[in-house]
Amino acid sequence: MQPDSQSPPPIIQVRDLTLGFGGTPLLAHLSFDIAPGEIFVILGGSGCGKSTLLKHMIGLYEPMAGEVVIGGEVFTGTEGQARRDILRRFGVMYQMGALFGSMTLLENVRLPLEEFTDLPDEAMDLVARLKLQLVGLAGFEQHMPAEISGGMQKRAAIARAMALDPDILFLDEPSAGLDPITSAELDQLILRLSRILGITFVVVTHELPSIFTIADRVIMLDKETRGILAQGDPAHLRDHSEHPWVRRFFNREATEAS
């Protein structure tokens, strides 16, 4: 159902982005596009700037140069109502979930609905319950974040991020600290949400099993060159990348992981 059988315009465009701290660039001149509905994974060794790139993409940090375009609108440097409108186009799941500890799961998911919509009270409850049901947390509505496991907290964080039905979900290290089974369940949840809701996912991770399960496309960041070392389908990169380091990264860890 794409318009005029052409590829749809990218939902996220990163244009010539240079980012860093204290005047020292960490990554320089990054440019890439993310297509609607894609599961896009940002990869790289520790300290290469994966999470920093994500934080620039979601507007927490200002880049040194370049811009991020979301849904055709320039996000970098945009202020006021235009910025708030773009912010509502995406949801973010932080590494530790970042659920509000003083609220139940239902209240956590309800919060964006209370702030940004005029839905009746019961309707907000129902919408929040459906989101929690979608991430497999039906029956846990009245639990406090501290009363559930780390994996459940991450799923609840995804439910909260989805409260306003964003087009894009940014996930920062969704598998970090989870056992392989919980991690695999989270991967299946991402695939299911992508299939059912058509959400675009931007995921920062270095869990190879996750990458091969969920990723449509990956970019691999490089600390040495401060740029993108490789991008494309992960299986293709594993077998055919021209960079030995990339092949070693995928093959060695893939072997260990399997």
Partner: peptide
């Protein structure tokens, strides 16, 4: 494709939040 409907059917970003 977004949230079950094609891109072309969605309103522009700036208008999405306008109630009603």
């Amino acid at each position: 494709m977004f949230n079950g409907l094609p891109w072309s059917s969605r309103v522009p970003v700036g208008k999405k939040t306008s109630v009603n």
